[in-house]
Design a protein around this nucleic acid. Sequence first.
DNA 1: GATTGCTACGAGGGGTCC
DNA 2: GGACCCCTCGTAGCAATC
Length: 269
Amino acid sequence: MPRSFLVKKKRGACGAWQWKEPEQLEWKEDNTFVDEMCMKQTPSCPDPQHPATVSPSVITLGCGTGGMRVSVPLERSGRPGADNRPSWSTVMLRRSVYEPTTLALHRAKPRPSPGSGDFVCPMCYKIFPLQRMLTRHLKCHNLVKRHPCRFCGKGFNDTFDLKRHMRTHTGIRPYKCELCEKAFTQRCSLESHMRKIHSVHQQYAYRQRRSKIFVCEDCGYTSSRPDEYFLHVRQCHPGSPALRRYYRRQAHENSSFAPAGRYLFNNLI
DNA sequence: GATTGCTACGAGGGGTCC
DNA sequence: GGACCCCTCGTAGCAATC
């Protein structure tokens, strides 16, 4: 499973890693990139089956019709004790990103047969029951991520992914183990911990929704009650976008029953 | 070297809003 | 119907431990 779709480059003197949009790479007719950071042209790979290895400062190429394999260094969090050593991933950069009419990848993959009413991804031939699921899925083939992290610049397709990633920078760990006080950034980590360390098995069915926890991403405050949570945000972080969303929702609910709800909403924001 | 526990993240499912 | 939000599952990769 690819863990990175953005190309990351080392910035000159300071040596810091930096995500780079694919548009910043210049394609050439002979299937090579021009690296404008170091103004060095990387060679194309003579064998499509053997993507070239790379040096950390240069994106190096595999080749193939319709696109190019590139080895890229993967982002690391910088978190103490975490996995911060550079590692590499091979990703496919497709010409179809720039030429939308070209869809020539993954020809060797067996194509599942879609039923009537199914929506098939033209890139990977995955089948989705709803158009909106296909539309969203297509974003994962797009190299440009719409939600960049303001700390490290890494991009994500989903706001939730970004919010979750931000916890690696803020250190907020909303999911606390009641038995040993250990805290986790994700619920699945806590559940795995409970299961393995304390032999406490979850009572939820597959894909069953857990009880919602409201997390203040500014200070780490958590509450299972929305009124408590928004009271906290209102008092401590009055400029939070979460508060605005809450007011908007409240106004929408109130407006269904009484005009006073809209008045309250308008006077709160 | 193998196993365990954890972090981080890609991506699908579903609800809601506009 | 698209965008947004939140959820979950699955998994790569690492450090610590056995």
